[in-house]
């Protein structure tokens, strides 16, 4: 295991080197909130943020991504983005989400557009310092990650620990000057951070185990909660758009002024939006608000887990914050399904 210790000064130098060598994305403050953006000076970077408005998913699956260029006569050329870049300061739950996307885009019909971008990324995770208002990663096993990353930063008393893995990790550490290996005491501190985070990142307490959520949903399709909550749903898609594991997209064409050339691109879509399942003739296969509302929970708790073998909610809590009517809290919904099983309702 390669774990190094960086003093605050070494950390600053290392980030300067990263900026010089690669496109660096990191967290910056925006009003009282935080966003991932291009970092051009080390002092812009915030590693002590609580949660970002959008997840760093946006670097491996951009909100708008050109897929093809089209030319006259139905000629199509693939457009690729494979320039290397570094997203630095990704929280563990967001990293787990990216790993889930890896599985989904790799399987069956590999999506080269995603995979190339992903391959070009050297992802540096940072352990959470500040707990956000609605995070519940501790309840779904995503408060801490121990594998898959290229680099992992942890704040300790007088600096940061940096663990690196693989070739990208070696490259990351090669940019830092004469690093000392972490001491036993350092590693002990890191274990404490992890233990604390598993305990601390629980602003909502999930009363079912992640493994049980799928079965719970199987028993709850007709539960009154779907209708009840959906009455207050704007169908605005905010819960989808801020979600680190949502990956549905629409594909559109846009021509340039010549009208003969243009690009085919994909944009994030959301299953809560009214026309998500509407076909060209106008028939809407998921016209009911409650059905769309339910579909999101089933995607997170049952349908995607059936494919990848893990809960597709990583507990970032962004949907809870983003939903202005307060109906998007997965913990509240799953707890309610647990506490008031559907059969009880059926009986009365």
């Amino acid at each position: 295991m390669s774990v190094y210790k960086l003093s605050m000064e070494q950390m600053r130098d290392w980030i300067s080197r990263l900026i010089a060598e690669r496109t660096l994305y990191g967290v910056q403050q925006r009003d009282e909130r935080f966003v991932f953006g291009r970092v051009e000076r080390p002092e812009e970077l915030r590693l002590d943020y609580d949660v970002t408005i959008l997840p760093p998913k946006k670097y491996v699956m951009p909100p708008r991504e050109n897929l093809l260029a089209y030319l006259p006569q139905e000629h199509y050329e693939s457009l690729w983005a494979d320039e290397p870049f570094v997203p630095l300061g990704v929280h563990p739950y967001d990293f787990v989400a990216i790993r889930q996307l890896d599985l989904l885009f790799e399987r069956d019909n590999p999506d080269e557009h995603y995979l190339r971008r992903r391959k070009a990324a050297a992802i540096v995770v940072v352990d959470v310092e500040r707990v956000s208002a609605n995070v519940f990663a501790g309840c779904v096993g995503t408060a801490v990650v121990e594998e898959g990353f290229d680099g992992l930063l942890t704040r300790v008393e007088d600096g940061y620990l940096l663990e690196v893995r693989g070739a990208k990790g070696e490259w990351l550490v090669s940019l830092a000057e004469s690093l000392a290996p972490a001491t036993r005491a350092d590693l002990r501190q890191r274990r404490e951070v992890w233990a604390n985070n598993r305990r601390r990142l629980r602003k909502h307490e999930l009363k079912v185990t992640p493994e049980r959520v799928g079965q719970l949903l199987r028993e709850s399709y007709g539960h009154p909660i779907w209708e009840e909550k959906a009455r207050q749903c704007y169908s605005c898609g905010s819960c989808n758009l801020v979600c680190p594991t949502c990956y549905c997209f629409d594909v559109r064409d846009e021509s340039d002024w010549s009208l003969r050339k243009g690009v085919r691109y994909r944009v994030w879509d959301g299953c809560l939006l009214e026309e998500f399942a509407m076909v060209a003739g106008g028939h809407n296969f998921r016209a009911a608000k409650a059905a769309r509302y339910r579909h999101r929970y089933y995607r997170k708790g049952l349908y995607v887990p059936e494919i990848i073998g893990q809960l597709a909610c990583v507990g970032c809590g962004r949907c809870i914050t983003a939903c202005t009517t307060g109906i998007a809290n997965p913990v509240e919904v799953f707890n309610r399904l647990q506490e008031e099983p559907h059969e009880q309702h059926a009986a009365c």
Binding site: L104, D108, D111, Y247, C248, D269, F276, A277, Y303
Partner: peptide, 8 residues
């Protein structure tokens, strides 16, 4: 190709 989610 089983990615975009619309036909689910």
């Amino acid at each position: 190709v089983g990615k975009c989610g619309h036909c689910q």
